[in-house]
Amino acid sequence: MSSSRKIRVIIAKPGLDGHDRGAKVVARALRDAGMEVIYTGLRQTPEMIVRAAVDEAADVVGLSILSGAHTALFPRIMELLKKEGVENVLVIAGGIIPEDDIPELKKVGIAEVFGPGTPLNEIVDYIKSNVKL
Protein backbone atom coordinates (compact mmCIF):
# COMPACT_ATOMS: atom_id res chain seq x y z
CA MET A 1 0.00 0.00 0.00
CA SER A 2 1.52 3.27 -1.05
CA SER A 3 2.04 6.19 1.18
CA SER A 4 1.67 8.61 -1.72
CA ARG A 5 -0.20 11.86 -1.54
CA LYS A 6 -3.33 11.63 0.53
CA ILE A 7 -6.15 14.10 0.42
CA ARG A 8 -6.62 15.52 3.90
CA VAL A 9 -10.14 16.60 4.77
CA ILE A 10 -11.60 18.41 7.74
CA ILE A 11 -15.30 17.83 8.31
CA ALA A 12 -16.70 20.41 10.68
CA LYS A 13 -20.04 21.38 12.17
CA PRO A 14 -20.06 25.14 12.69
CA GLY A 15 -22.44 26.76 15.13
CA LEU A 16 -24.87 25.14 17.53
CA ASP A 17 -26.45 22.59 15.21
CA GLY A 18 -26.22 19.06 16.64
CA HIS A 19 -27.42 16.97 13.69
CA ASP A 20 -24.30 15.09 12.69
CA ARG A 21 -25.62 12.10 10.76
CA GLY A 22 -24.64 13.53 7.38
CA ALA A 23 -21.23 14.73 8.53
CA LYS A 24 -20.38 11.32 9.98
CA VAL A 25 -21.62 9.42 6.94
CA VAL A 26 -19.66 11.66 4.58
CA ALA A 27 -16.55 11.29 6.77
CA ARG A 28 -16.76 7.52 6.49
CA ALA A 29 -17.31 7.66 2.75
CA LEU A 30 -14.26 9.85 2.28
CA ARG A 31 -12.20 7.49 4.40
CA ASP A 32 -13.38 4.59 2.29
CA ALA A 33 -12.33 6.57 -0.76
CA GLY A 34 -8.77 6.73 0.55
CA MET A 35 -8.73 10.16 2.18
CA GLU A 36 -7.48 11.15 5.61
CA VAL A 37 -10.45 12.61 7.44
CA ILE A 38 -10.50 14.70 10.57
CA TYR A 39 -13.98 15.13 11.97
CA THR A 40 -13.92 18.06 14.36
CA GLY A 41 -17.25 17.38 16.03
CA LEU A 42 -19.97 19.79 17.07
CA ARG A 43 -20.01 23.40 18.19
CA GLN A 44 -17.11 24.60 16.12
CA THR A 45 -16.51 28.32 15.97
CA PRO A 46 -15.02 29.73 12.77
CA GLU A 47 -11.74 30.21 14.65
CA MET A 48 -11.59 26.56 15.68
CA ILE A 49 -12.31 25.34 12.16
CA VAL A 50 -9.65 27.51 10.63
CA ARG A 51 -7.10 26.55 13.29
CA ALA A 52 -7.69 22.89 12.46
CA ALA A 53 -7.40 23.60 8.74
CA VAL A 54 -4.04 25.29 9.29
CA ASP A 55 -2.45 22.82 11.70
CA GLU A 56 -3.63 19.82 9.76
CA ALA A 57 -2.70 21.39 6.41
CA ALA A 58 -6.13 20.43 5.16
CA ASP A 59 -6.72 20.18 1.42
CA VAL A 60 -10.47 20.26 1.90
CA VAL A 61 -12.81 21.71 4.50
CA GLY A 62 -16.35 20.32 4.53
CA LEU A 63 -18.91 22.34 6.47
CA SER A 64 -22.11 20.65 7.59
CA ILE A 65 -24.97 22.79 8.81
CA LEU A 66 -28.73 22.37 9.05
CA SER A 67 -29.68 25.24 11.32
CA GLY A 68 -29.83 28.11 8.88
CA ALA A 69 -26.89 29.87 10.48
CA HIS A 70 -24.71 29.44 7.41
CA THR A 71 -25.34 33.01 6.25
CA ALA A 72 -23.66 34.33 9.36
CA LEU A 73 -20.96 31.72 9.83
CA PHE A 74 -19.66 30.84 6.38
CA PRO A 75 -18.43 34.28 5.35
CA ARG A 76 -16.58 34.53 8.66
CA ILE A 77 -14.92 31.16 8.09
CA MET A 78 -13.81 32.16 4.58
CA GLU A 79 -12.50 35.46 5.91
CA LEU A 80 -10.37 33.73 8.51
CA LEU A 81 -9.06 31.16 6.06
CA LYS A 82 -7.88 34.00 3.89
CA LYS A 83 -6.34 35.79 6.85
CA GLU A 84 -4.37 32.70 7.79
CA GLY A 85 -3.11 32.33 4.26
CA VAL A 86 -4.74 28.99 3.52
CA GLU A 87 -7.22 30.15 0.91
CA ASN A 88 -6.24 27.35 -1.48
CA VAL A 89 -8.23 24.98 0.64
CA LEU A 90 -11.25 23.59 -1.18
CA VAL A 91 -14.27 24.53 0.92
CA ILE A 92 -17.51 22.64 0.36
CA ALA A 93 -20.75 22.58 2.31
CA GLY A 94 -23.71 20.35 2.96
CA GLY A 95 -26.87 20.15 5.01
CA ILE A 96 -29.93 22.35 4.68
CA ILE A 97 -28.85 25.35 2.67
CA PRO A 98 -31.59 26.97 0.57
CA GLU A 99 -30.81 27.28 -3.12
CA ASP A 100 -31.37 31.01 -2.97
CA ASP A 101 -28.46 31.40 -0.56
CA ILE A 102 -25.97 29.48 -2.66
CA PRO A 103 -24.87 32.28 -5.03
CA GLU A 104 -23.85 34.45 -2.09
CA LEU A 105 -21.95 31.58 -0.53
CA LYS A 106 -20.11 30.87 -3.75
CA LYS A 107 -19.20 34.50 -3.96
CA VAL A 108 -17.36 34.31 -0.65
CA GLY A 109 -15.54 31.21 -1.78
CA ILE A 110 -17.61 28.14 -0.97
CA ALA A 111 -16.85 25.97 -3.98
CA GLU A 112 -19.94 23.78 -3.95
CA VAL A 113 -22.98 22.99 -1.83
CA PHE A 114 -24.29 19.43 -1.61
CA GLY A 115 -27.93 19.29 -0.61
CA PRO A 116 -30.12 16.48 0.72
CA GLY A 117 -30.17 13.42 -1.51
CA THR A 118 -26.65 13.87 -2.88
CA PRO A 119 -25.05 10.47 -3.49
CA LEU A 120 -21.81 10.01 -1.58
CA ASN A 121 -19.71 9.23 -4.62
CA GLU A 122 -20.70 12.57 -6.11
CA ILE A 123 -18.97 14.29 -3.20
CA VAL A 124 -15.96 11.99 -3.47
CA ASP A 125 -15.62 12.60 -7.20
CA TYR A 126 -16.03 16.32 -6.79
CA ILE A 127 -13.23 16.48 -4.26
CA LYS A 128 -10.91 14.33 -6.33
CA SER A 129 -11.50 16.48 -9.39
CA ASN A 130 -11.23 19.85 -7.70
CA VAL A 131 -8.79 19.58 -4.85
CA LYS A 132 -5.60 21.58 -5.30
CA LEU A 133 -2.74 19.49 -4.02
Binding site: G15, L16, D17, S67, G68, A69, T71, A72, L73
Partner: peptide, 22 residues
Protein backbone atom coordinates in the same frame (compact mmCIF):
# COMPACT_ATOMS: atom_id res chain seq x y z
CA UNK B 1 -34.19 27.90 18.64
CA UNK B 2 -30.74 26.47 19.23
CA UNK B 3 -29.43 29.20 21.54
CA UNK B 4 -32.45 28.68 23.81
CA UNK B 5 -32.01 24.91 23.71
CA UNK B 6 -28.37 25.25 24.68
CA UNK B 7 -28.94 27.84 27.39
CA UNK B 8 -27.65 30.93 25.58
CA UNK B 9 -29.34 34.31 25.41
CA UNK B 10 -30.22 35.66 22.00
CA UNK B 11 -27.41 38.19 22.21
CA UNK B 12 -24.71 35.73 23.21
CA UNK B 13 -21.83 35.76 20.69
CA UNK B 14 -22.39 32.05 20.12
CA UNK B 15 -26.00 32.76 19.18
CA UNK B 16 -25.12 34.86 16.18
CA UNK B 17 -26.98 33.73 13.10
CA UNK B 18 -28.92 31.11 15.06
CA UNK B 19 -31.60 33.22 16.73
CA UNK B 20 -35.12 32.19 15.75
CA UNK B 21 -33.94 29.91 12.97
CA UNK B 22 -34.97 26.39 14.02
Amino acid sequence: DLPTQIGYDSDDPLARGEVGKV
